[in-house]
Design a protein around this nucleic acid. Structure first.
Length: 886
RNA sequence: GCCCCGGUGGCGGAACGGGUAGACGCUACGGACUUAAAAUCCGUUGGCCGCAAGGCCAUGCAGGUUCGACUCCUGCCCGGGGCACCA
């Protein structure tokens, strides 16, 4: 060993053994020291701070930024490790890679924490950010922290306000009324999450619906484009495109009117239908409880009044409405069929949505399952008007196929017409009468962004008694959110804070009231990826740096964001485009939707008040499936099993990655997370298996240590390799090709790691101390360290140096596959008889069918099954398999 | 309820364009080393039949297409995500 460090350490009073360990590669794998040293090195060299550089291909790798809940959970670790592996891999491919990080810092949990702990949301949020940032740094992610942002910073949210004002100018933002959940006890608006079984989560009071003024963004104006552009998103998962497409929900149909005369006043009841071909089968129309006709009828009928009021209670959630028992009450009002003039009764139906279409539907019991059930329940006529392939129809019970397209019957002039022709004819006749025409409608609704909450971005509007709603002038932006308020659960603190809402009208100077609603937090997350590329600009929302980095080349985040966040971001980007802020339309070129990390849910439901959740680590559990049960460790009392669900703060079923890092180090945590499942799969958490990843790290360390102990290795001579040496090199380069493909194309990190594990098993068996053998070994270990460096960068950093390299592994290029190493003389092919595996034979690489056939039939295991039978067919898949059909 | 996805050994998963089902890892069991334990190393590990050679069954369930199906088609069951104010 080196005697100088020994001397120095003796001077400082350290034990000599310490010196021996430090003066060469440590024998033991001790991640804590290794990881701290690598991170110090990256910090010192500023390895991950990047600048625009037109000379290199750029690569913008982005993970969905976290909500600063307080602690990292395994979903974060999974998400950011995927991003980091790709960041480091693309860097090794020679790209200029940007991987930024920020905080989705506004939102409800901060207000809940404030209510619980009497601490201001700003303080709580910033403390959480500081803590989570340390946790992220401990995981060694290659993040450019110089671009960090938090959406609660006025420097950020002022641009929400600025663009909102541009949208107002362009008519994209507008004001109208919207329905919210109202807690009558707390006198406050509740989020859907805060409504449990129709009651307020804190008060237990039955929730009412309330209509209040709100600001909306006209996303429907972009519906056509948002739908059409899905076609071009080739590198998005198919399922996400399908979900978005269904969400936007274009349907072509007919808008038609049922004329009426009520109390001597003429009117038209409008409905939309995609099945105008069934119009002769209409036996009732149903309207939503909020529909003007329902209101009119309720004003003179107590039963109806009670029913309409009942419909107006309960939650506003579509899932609740859709699972409701379908109920209806007749209004006693009649409208006229637009073609026949027959009288048709108007019903109020609790299943009709005011927000979709016209808030009214025509009831065709013969060909709509829901209408059928409704007609059966209330004794309304069921008229079959479509015949499919001559199939019989019975009104006794609904049958599959009744809703299929077919040929009109019992439809007068339309009899015999097929679906398309029938609709054309009917729409034509309706148009002649001025009672309808073909129309495209969208399921997509405009985006309501007003929230009656404190911890969000203020909407920059001033309400003046004289001038009305006046936009805050640009030079007065940002409208700053006061940061010291502490909500108490009743109403919005901003609305109780005169310091905030008292102001002067920018137009006339009179006393006025500032808008106290804040924006939906989805606004904040709809454009943050632009801001990372324009960090620090005080004068503009985005600048020319964004033009260099955008669009995001790879976006990674949870599948739970497949619709809302991704759709809002696509919309917002187009608005920015139309305002001249960018030239791109699609913000995310390639999307990876990471599966959720699930864990068990344990809870107690008290007789009243909110449900209490318990972390699985606090529960002693037993049994499987239906019989799963548990008791709380702290009090020994039973807790209810709530099944498997996403790890979430509200359900308290997260796993703390810190424990993992403290015990095994960041590299093991990263390696295990990537190895446990393919990134798109949901992952049911289990502590088992982490140990295996750690074992692999120790094994790798030990093998490199044993190799470098012997001294440096030379170069091998390709033409003088022994068969075992050639075999190892073949496996090495096959693995290299596979790992590059698995990471770069397939994004299957689990199989990449499995391949390296298999290779390391081969390396461990390779016991060759010759100069040639050691040279092959050196190549193998060099490549293994390079291949693993995106996954376990800290250990790779140390091992690369131990293998004798003076460069930092983080600056190395991804190695090239040596084609010479892959060459093979013979290949093994599988022989099937009648599709069943009966043997394997070696044949020359590139052999023809005749040679394969001869070899296959000569195999004794095969011959046994062919003997005495006629070969009817022979299938040959070159290089892979033959199938003898007898 | 509607839209989307998934279901393979005791467990996580592999099989990439229809071509060897179970790679890799975990668990369990057996063995080596040790006074002992831990760690490490070696071996076995889908089910059934068989002394063995080997054979049969098997990818949620029921069918279908094909020389050949985890993979494609039809119907069903179960689990997960989303449903517009959790993020």
């Amino acid at each position: 060993f080196n005697s100088l460090p020994l001397f120095n350490s003796l001077l400082k009073g350290c034990a000599p053994s310490w010196v021996i360990l430090r003066s060469c590669m440590q024998e033991r794998y001790e991640p804590a020291g290794i990881e701290a040293a690598a991170q110090r090195e990256w910090d010192r060299s500023g390895a991950f701070a990047v600048r625009e550089d037109p000379s290199r291909p750029k690569y913008y790798c982005l993970c969905m930024f976290p909500y600063p809940s307080g602690h990292l959970h395994m979903g974060h670790v999974r998400n950011y490790t995927i991003g980091d592996v790709l960041t480091r891999f693309m860097r090794m491919q020679g790209c200029n890679v940007l991987q930024p990080m920020g905080w989705d810092a506004f939102g409800l949990p901060a207000e809940n924490a404030a209510i619980e702990n009497r601490v201001a949301p700003a303080r709580w949020t910033r403390d959480n950010i500081a803590h989570m940032k340390r946790q992220l740094q401990a995981l060694g992610f290659a993040i450019d922290w110089t671009r960090e942002l938090a959406t609660c910073d006025p420097d950020y949210y002022r641009w929400n306000q600025w663009l909102f004002l541009r949208m107002l100018e362009r008519g994209i933002a507008y004001k109208t009324t919207g329905v919210v959940n109202w807690d009558p006890v707390d006198q406050t608006v509740l989020a859907n999450e805060q409504v449990i079984d129709g009651r307020g989560w804190r008060t237990g009071a039955p929730i009412e619906k309330r209509e209040i003024p709100m600001y909306y963004l006209r996303i429907t104006g972009y519906a056509e484009e948002l739908l059409a552009a899905l076609e071009g998103l080739d590198d998005w998962p198919e399922r996400v495109r399908v979900m978005q497409s269904n969400w936007i929900g274009r349907s072509e149909g007919v808008n038609l009117s049922f004329p009426y005369e009520i109390d001597g006043r003429q009117g038209e009841l409008k409905v939309f239908t995609t099945r105008a071909d069934t119009i002769m089968g209409v036996s009732f129309v149903a309207v939503a409880a909020e529909h003007p006709l329902a209101e009119l009828a309720a004003s003179r009928d107590a039963t109806l009044r009670a029913f309409v009021d009942e419909c107006r209670r309960g939650s506003v959630m579509e899932a609740d409405l859709a699972t409701l028992e379908k109920k209806g009450v007749p209004t006693g009002l009649f409208v006229r069929h637009p073609l026949t003039g027959d009288e048709i009764e108007v019903w109020v139906g609790n299943y009709v949505l005011m927000a979709y279409g016209e808030g009214a539907v025509m009831g065709v019991p013969g060909h709509d399952e829901r209408d059928f059930a409704f007609a059966k329940k209330y004794g309304l006529p069921i008229l079959p008007v479509i015949e499919v392939d001559g199939r019989p129809y019975s009104t006794d019970a609904w049958q599959d196929g009744y809703a299929d397209e077919g040929r009109c019957i019992n439809s007068g002039a339309y009899d015999g017409l097929e679906y398309d022709n029938a609709i054309d004819a009917i729409a034509g006749d309706l148009e002649k009468k001025g009672l309808g025409r073909k129309q495209v409608v969208w399921r997509l609704r405009d985006w309501g962004i007003s929230r009656q909450r404190y911890w969000g971005c203020p909407i920059p509007i001033i309400h003046c008694p004289a001038c009305g709603d006046v936009p805050v002038p640009d030079e007065q932006l940002p409208v700053r959110l006061p940061e010291e308020l502490v909500p108490d659960g009743s109403g919005n603190p901003l609305a109780k804070s005169p310091e905030f809402y008292e102001c002067r009208c920018p137009k006339c100077g009179a006393d006025a009231r500032r808008e106290t609603d804040t924006m939906d937090t989805f606004v904040d997350s709809s454009w943050y990826f632009f801001r990372f590329a324009s960090a620090g600009n005080d004068h503009a929302m985005v600048d020319e740096r964004a033009a260099y980095w955008l669009p995001v080349d790879q976006y990674i985040g949870g599948i739970e964001h497949a619709i809302l966040h991704l759709l809002y971001s696509r919309f917002w980007t187009r608005v920015m485009r139309d305002c001249g802020l960018t030239t791109i339309s699609e913000p995310f070129r390639r999307l990876l939707t990471q599966g959720m990390v699930l864990n068990e849910i344990w809870l107690r439901k008290p007789a009243s008040g909110r449900i209490a959740y318990y972390n699985p680590a606090e529960v002693e559990a037993a049994g499987e499936g239906e019989r799963r049960s548990g008791v709380l460790k702290s009090d020994g009392q039973p807790v209810e099993y709530g099944g498997i669900g996403t790890m979430s703060k509200s359900r308290r079923n997260g796993v703390d990655p810190q424990e993992l890092i403290d015990r095994y180090g960041a590299d093991t945590a990263r390696l295990f997370t990537m190895f446990a499942a393919p990134p798109e799969h949901t992952l049911e958490w289990s502590d088992e298996g982490v140990e295996g990843a750690f074992r692999f790290m120790k094994r790798l360390w030990k093998i490199v240590h044993a190799h470098v102990q012997v001294g440096s290795a030379g170069e091998f001579r390709l033409d003088a390799l022994e068969p075992a040496q050639r075999a190892l090199r073949r496996q090495l380069h096959q693995t290299l090709a596979k790992v590059g493909d698995d990471i770069g194309r397939r994004r299957t990190f689990n199989t990449a790691i499995a391949a390296v594990m298999e290779l390391l098993n081969g390396i461990a068996r390779f016991d060759d101390r010759s100069a040639q053998g050691r040279a092959v070994m050196q190549e193998a270990l060099d490549l293994v360290v390079l291949m693993l460096s995106p996954f376990v960068p800290h250990a790779a950093h140390a091992l690369w140096q131990a293998l004798g390299h003076s460069t930092a592994v983080v600056d190395e290029r991804w190695p090239a596959v040596d084609p010479a190493a892959l060459a093979q003389d013979t290949v093994e092919i599988v022989v099937q008889v009648n599709g069943r595996l009966r043997g394997r034979v070696q044949i020359a690489a590139g052999a023809g069918e005749a040679a394969a056939r001869a070899a296959a039939l000569a195999d004794p295991g095969v011959a046994k099954f062919v003997a005495g039978q006629t070969v009817r067919k022979f299938v040959y898949v070159p290089g892979k398999l033959v199938n003898v059909v007898v």
